[in-house]
Nucleic acid binder design. Sequence first.
DNA 1: GTCTATAAAGCGAGCGCTCGCTCGTAAAAT
DNA 2: ATTTTACGAGCGAGCGCTCGCTTTATAGAC
Lengths: 234, 234
Amino acid sequence: MTQPKPVPPRGDAPTARLDLSLEALAARILARHGDTIRVKKAHVATQRLARIVDCTLALANRVGFHSMSLRDLSKETGLSMGALYAYFDSKETLLLMVLGTVSEVVEEALGHPPAELPPPERLRWLVAGHVALTEAMLPWFTFAYMQAKSFPPEARALAVASEQRTEGLIAQVLADGKAAGDFEIADVEMTAALLKPMLQDWYVKRSKYRRRKVSPGAYSQALMAFVGAAIGKR
Amino acid sequence: MTQPKPVPPRGDAPTARLDLSLEALAARILARHGDTIRVKKAHVATQRLARIVDCTLALANRVGFHSMSLRDLSKETGLSMGALYAYFDSKETLLLMVLGTVSEVVEEALGHPPAELPPPERLRWLVAGHVALTEAMLPWFTFAYMQAKSFPPEARALAVASEQRTEGLIAQVLADGKAAGDFEIADVEMTAALLKPMLQDWYVKRSKYRRRKVSPGAYSQALMAFVGAAIGKR
DNA sequence: GTCTATAAAGCGAGCGCTCGCTCGTAAAAT
DNA sequence: ATTTTACGAGCGAGCGCTCGCTTTATAGAC
């Protein structure tokens, strides 16, 4: 019943295979942190977790996670202080619930690019997938990016690892394309390093692109055109 | 005496004309916030401000500005709580001292690209200048970038404005180059938007590039090569 | 259906602590 | 002698977190 209802696969898009609804993501959290969550009935826990995380993202993205007090969160969720602490044993655990979900989903969505595609197509798959994923889980990614900088070692490590993973995936495709003669790249690592911040810009400066009325599709298309020209895609 | 000692201009580099030493930057702060600083003797004020800002950047870049307590700062600077409050009237003012200095220096260093240079050279001037400036004032820029996200309206506005300014400068050069037939650019605004995060990556992810032993010069060169290929510089 | 025993979930005042900030006083400089 | 600077204990407020208690949901007996 708390199982994420399967979404019919649409094409090959990395996000189409996954259920990224708030409830499904809350169910993931319950699965990963079930041992520290004191609430026993799964459907209750999932429902409350969804609300807790939703409010956490909203509040933290407005004033910062550190500045968000648990009393604020209590007011926003409608749950008492005591009730909140039935779902996590410390504020840091709440932080890890969000960060863990993000890196888990990143791995599932982008971790295995379709090997049958030629490198140029695979690069497009990766770029479009990254934009689509961060668009679908926008508050999660802005949270992870903004908060992970100055926070406890464990949380920080999680964020850094996830980021390196994506850059590694990009580098792999670039290397394959270079070997196959599809790309002209002097330094694969450096090129991947330059690509990453442009991908991140989509969610880090989301408000800017909203103001300029740039759609997700338009962004990934512009980005691909820019990168394609830079690495001499034929 | 507190006047920044002039540095002999080296070539045309935007940073060469400016004194970016800690003392000179502290003198700027004194000039801008002289009315709220209760210490009267300029040389004392400048000296202490330099120490205060230096420690603030070190502490805040480690644990975040919000998490840095003024007791921490007191211990680190060797000044008492009371003494600290002779140099700023609130923690937010301390924040604005740093952010204000950054945007002031950005404007002076990059605000007037040499019009006599042809657009491709002017773009190189901007890119190299941005990298050199952020390298020279690394802790200031990481501070501004990381802290300005989730902070009081005034501070936030300052950071956003400064960022838009730089992007605008880039867009201007790109537009000039497109008009002159130097560049092939479909959407100037979008291209400038894509360039900015790559420039910022240099200081936002500085530790990554340090680990990979990438020098400032190597970065701006790689970036220019990438961008040059992308916008069809001839 | 109604009653009732037990478990599950929620409540919120209060604990110990740290925060930004103040102010009466001491030390240093002139 | 007077001004300038530095000191640091102390203030009220707000923090993360706890715990004794109440309310709500559930299940078996009749």
